[in-house]
Design a protein around this nucleic acid. Structure first.
Length: 766
DNA sequence: AATCGATGTCATAAA
DNA sequence: GTTTTATGACATCGA
């Protein structure tokens, strides 16, 4: 338990760090997109790579570039945040898996046997193992079967992670290739290598590259392909192909396994460490999959950790309470029937052990709590204990081949000679027995719940399906997660920040250049940039905002402050409006046909034109962004007419309102997204809880069966004064309120039991 | 021509 | 009371 907690805590820390790293990565992407506006398609690749569903692509498209040049900054801001959130979610889902591997491996070096020695290579190792397994037709059926359930999810994740890993790379390659060399030169390859490493550092699995893409990469090395716009798509396609390639193999559902398996990997390691180190390392990655056949792996790490904690608590409870079951079955708890206790423990642990991979980690404590029941049997078999606790034990349990693994317990409890008979008896309908009644009573609702669950269609498979669906949902709302900086706060800081940001002053035309004040710098461009002004200012703002959110991240520094791509555009435009270089479509359109002045006006906002026509001696940016005091000073400095003053105030009002509206919309969108996320989380939670419920119901059923068999065993061993067995048809055992067990003739109600207590004995069997 | 999304603007309330 | 901010509603623009 302690060990687990330690592990848990460390995991949390590592996870946090991982998130930070991923955040960096996202920013890198946004940076790239800023850097290379023309490469939108390619950039969309990365973004889409981070998305899990088409919806996200759509969203990215909507928010991203290529639609409205004007909205670049705001959209970029959103996109960045969205990407960040997406990646954060993704990291929880799949991408981080690799990352987690590495971290966990590092930290657990003292315990981990195989992987600990290789810090970063460990990723490759783990993943390699996963891939091996995936591609290895020799993979055990159990693995296959287990992973099939999660196939689609895995697939999804795999695709995402791979794309996420690749796309940025493609983008980053882009500059290089555009530099004149389309072929994959040595430098390119080196660059790719570096990027790979980078990606790995950022959480993308190296094996992804090594396995599918790298291979193709090398293939393509010979045939230089045009790497321009298509590059990103090609890259993606290749990746998809790579994934599909894996997926093309039988329906074993290995499609996504390779990558996703990285996810359970760390868990596996832990489980291995904790439970059994014997297991070959190659199988480490896979056996876990069967444990979570229903796609539990899709759950957040948080949730899995929660599961762990929950189970730990559960176990603690069980340990603390001497007889959880007896109490639940209306027993007063004073009984000394250990069998009941054992039952409780074993059965309780059963559901946990069955499907929840992470829960395996908690096994040790379980084992300590009730070693005799499971472990002897587990040990007797050479197969790894994890995946098939129940199966193993049931197969081992002597003659009883009942469908429920629980029956194996009877094999333990019941002496051989009794065993057969009890088995027979078990097969006969004994439900009316008192014990059964007791159990029935206490568990009636659960059973009904089970039925309900069944009615709801929550079979295990369906539950997994639900989970998948939910996870895909998560894809939908990936970006939604709470952004680090609230729009409002960031907004306020942004204006001043934007002004102080590097870009600003350069292209002012109307004397704003000289302005060195923070707030004023931003106002520089004024009429010159005209139509772009909003975009520009927003860019400044946003670009500052984003960095402000990631200040803690060193890598971001150079990224976040690089707004230079704005600069050339704006400045050039300011200097020579005729140049059609402007990124905006509007600009393109008009610049070609219209005379400078016209274009000048065209691209100015209405207020800017008005200001110009009114000969306002300073920029609109100044008017809008200056603090009140400075603004008033400014007004006082110049002798302005009433009309000019009115216009200036209008400009200020409108300008501020414009920004306010932008913020408002941004907030609104964020709210929607967050709500989306909330819905998704709740749904996923619901699915998890339902699954949990079913597991418990199942365990209860098993417990009930065990109770029945125990009842039979006890009953068959009872002898009357003359040594004759009590005929089951005439007598039954009844559980009294004080915990004692009575044998009494059938038909005698509990109320009458005191009248004719044939024999009162405590169950001293266990 | 209709539609839609993005954006700007206005009016208004609240801080 | 003034300024700023937030937000709903409407207008406009471009696709």
């Amino acid at each position: 338990m302690l060990y687990l907690k330690k592990y848990f805590t460390e995991g949390l820390i590592q996870f946090t760090i991982l998130l930070s790293l991923l955040g960096v990565r996202v920013d890198v992407d946004s940076y790239l997109s800023n850097q290379l506006p023309p490469l939108r398609e390619i950039i969309l690749g990365p973004s889409s790579a981070y998305t899990q569903t088409q919806f996200h692509n759509l969203r990215n498209t909507l928010d991203g570039y290529g639609i409205h040049p004007k909205s670049v900054d705001l959209d970029q801001f959103f996109t960045t945040r969205r990407l960040l959130n997406q990646v954060r979610q993704l990291d929880r889902l799949s991408v981080p898996s690799t990352e987690l591997n590495a971290w966990l491996v590092h930290r657990d070096s003292e315990t981990v046997v195989s992987t600990s020695s290789q810090p970063s290579p460990s990723i490759t190792l783990d993943n390699g193992g996963g891939l091996e397994d995936v591609n290895n037709p020799d993979a055990t059926p159990a693995m296959r079967g287990g992973s099939v359930g999660t196939e689609s999810t895995y697939n999804l994740n795999a695709e995402d992670s791979s794309l996420g890993a690749v796309a940025p790379e493609g983008n980053q390659e882009q500059p290089g290739s555009r530099d004149g060399n389309d072929d994959l030169s040595k430098e390119d390859i080196d660059l790719i290598d570096i990027l790979w490493r980078q990606d790995i550092d950022l959480g993308a699995g190296r094996e992804v590259f090594n396995y599918s893409n790298r291979q193709k990469e090398s293939e393509e090395e010979e045939k230089p392909s045009p790497r321009e716009n298509k590059d990103g798509n090609e890259e993606q396609e290749r990746w998809r192909n790579g994934v599909n390639l894996q997926g093309a193999q039988p329906v074993d559902g290995e499609t996504g396994e390779s990558i996703p398996e990285q996810f359970p990997a760390p868990v596996v390691v832990t489980a291995e460490i904790v439970s059994n180190e014997e297991v070959p390392s190659t199988s480490q990655g896979l056996p876990l999959a069967p444990l979570r056949p229903t796609g539990e792996t899709q759950l957040d790490l948080e949730q899995q950790w929660q599961d762990i904690m929950a189970i730990m608590e559960l176990q603690a409870m069980e340990v603390n309470s001497s007889s959880p079951n007896s109490s639940s079955s209306s027993d007063s708890g004073t009984t000394d029937s250990n069998s009941v206790v054992n039952f409780g423990l074993s059965t309780r642990s059963t559901p946990v052990n069955q499907d929840v991979s992470l829960h395996q980690a908690s096994l040790p404590s379980c084992s300590q709590d009730f070693p005799p029941i499971f472990y002897p049997q587990v040990d007797s078999t050479t197969t790894p204990p994890r995946t098939t606790m129940l199966r193993l034990s049931s197969s081992n349990s002597s003659s009883i081949n009942s469908t429920f693994g629980a029956t194996n317990l009877t094999g333990i409890f019941i002496p051989p000679h009794v065993n057969s008979s009890s088995t027979n008896i078990t097969s006969t309908p004994i439900l009316p027995d008192p014990f059964s009644n007791l159990l029935e009573e206490s568990m009636l609702d659960e059973i009904s719940l089970l039925d309900l669950a069944m009615e709801e269609g929550f079979s295990q498979a369906q539950a997994s399906q639900l989970e998948e669906e939910l996870d895909s949902d998560s894809g939908l709302s990936l970006d939604s997660s709470h952004s680090p900086a609230s729009p409002s706060s960031s907004e306020t800081s942004c204006s001043s920040a934007a002004s102080s940001s590097s870009t600003s002053a350069t292209f002012s035309e109307e004397g704003a250049v000289g302005y060195s004040t923070d707030s004023e710098v931003a106002t520089a461009e004024e009429g010159a940039v005209g139509g772009y002004q909003p975009g520009y200012s927003k860019l400044c703002r946003m670009s500052y905002q984003n960095p402000s959110q990631f200040h803690g991240l060193p890598q971001l520094d150079n990224i976040s402050h690089n707004h230079t791509y704005n600069l050339p555009l704006s400045s050039v435009f300011a200097e020579d409006p005729e140049l059609p270089i402007s990124s905006g479509k509007k600009a393109m359109k008009h610049s070609k046909l219209q005379p400078p002045q016209d274009l000048y006006d065209k691209h100015s906002s209405r207020d800017e034109r008005r200001a110009r026509s009114m000969k306002i001696p300073f920029s609109n940016e100044k008017i809008i962004n200056l603090p009140v005091e400075e603004f008033n000073e400014l007004l006082a400095k110049h002798h302005l007419s009433e009309g000019q003053l009115a216009l200036i105030r209008d400009i200020r009002r409108r300008g501020k309102n414009k920004m306010a509206a932008q913020n408002c919309r941004k907030r609104k969108l964020d709210t929607i997204i967050n709500l989306e996320q909330g819905v998704h989380d709740l749904r996923r939670n619901k699915g998890r809880l339902l699954k949990e419920k079913m597991e418990f119901i199942r365990s209860i059923r098993q417990m009930k069966q065990k109770m029945q068999s125990l009842y039979q065993e006890v009953f068959t061993q009872l002898r009357d004064e003359e040594g004759r067995p009590y005929p089951p048809s005439e007598y039954s055992l009844q559980y009294s309120a004080d915990g004692s067990v009575l044998i009494m003739p059938r038909g005698v109600t509990t109320a009458e039991q005191h009248r004719k207590p044939e024999k009162k004995q405590k169950d001293k069997k266990k």
